[in-house]
Amino acid sequence: MKNILIFLTGVSLLTSCKTDHKTKMSDPEALENFDRQYAESMKDALLVLDLDSVKSSHGDRFLELSSIINQHDPIGLLKIGAPEDEYEPEIKTIIVQLDKDMTEQQVHDLIYQEFLRWFEDESTTGPKESYGELAVDIHKWMKK
């Protein structure tokens, strides 16, 4: 999945720079623009994943992870009336990165980083330590 995203990003950027894979960029400004756009797009490659495609490809696993995250309600949004699908964008970017060989600490780091990505700062996400129990539950679920 990651390789497909990288390829599509490269094609998109080459097109936006008005070149293709056979053309060498000799214009330093065009090359600098390409490098900048590529770097920016890679930061957000996960954000542009299609939610329905991710849900479809992961099937019941997406629903199971959603249930775990909703039970923990890490930001407290469900408690104040947010819809049950509130955390789906975060679930989308978490589930595509999970690997059954990850340690509990790696899961913890991943979950926290994704919540930071979506909610932008610790004043909203809360401290990393508050994601510990969620990480334990997701790690256990992954091992099933």
Rank of each mutant, 00 (worst) to 15 (best):
M1S: 15
K2T: 07
K2P: 00
N3E: 14
N3I: 10
I6N: 05
L8G: 02
T9Q: 09
T9I: 10
T9N: 08
G10T: 12
V11M: 12
V11Q: 13
S12I: 04
L13W: 07
L13Q: 15
T15G: 06
H21P: 00
H21A: 09
H21W: 09
T23K: 15
T23Y: 09
K24W: 09
M25D: 02
M25R: 15
D27A: 09
P28F: 08
P28G: 03
N33K: 12
F34S: 04
D35A: 15
D35Q: 15
Q37G: 09
Y38V: 07
Y38G: 03
S41D: 13
M42T: 12
M42H: 07
D44G: 08
A45V: 13
A45T: 08
L46S: 04
D50C: 13
L51P: 01
L51D: 05
S53P: 01
V54S: 08
K55P: 07
S56D: 13
S56R: 15
S57H: 10
D60C: 05
R61N: 14
F62R: 01
L63C: 05
S66N: 12
S66C: 08
I69V: 11
H72L: 02
H72C: 03
P74I: 08
P74A: 07
P74Q: 04
P74Y: 01
P74N: 06
I75S: 02
G76M: 06
G76N: 05
L77A: 12
L78R: 04
K79Q: 15
K79R: 09
I80F: 11
G81Q: 04
G81S: 06
A82W: 02
P83Y: 02
P83Q: 11
E84H: 06
E84N: 12
E84F: 07
E86I: 03
E86H: 08
Y87C: 00
E88N: 12
P89D: 05
E90W: 00
T93M: 04
T93P: 00
I95K: 01
I95P: 00
V96L: 06
L98H: 02
D99W: 03
K100G: 11
D101I: 10
Q105A: 11
Q106A: 13
V107Q: 00
H108M: 03
H108D: 05
D109S: 12
L110P: 03
I111S: 00
I111V: 14
E114P: 00
L116F: 01
R117M: 13
F119Q: 03
E120L: 08
S123Y: 15
T125E: 07
G126I: 07
K128V: 04
Y131D: 01
E133Q: 14
L134A: 07
L134P: 02
I138F: 04
H139W: 14
K140Y: 11
W141N: 07
W141F: 15
K143V: 05
K143S: 14
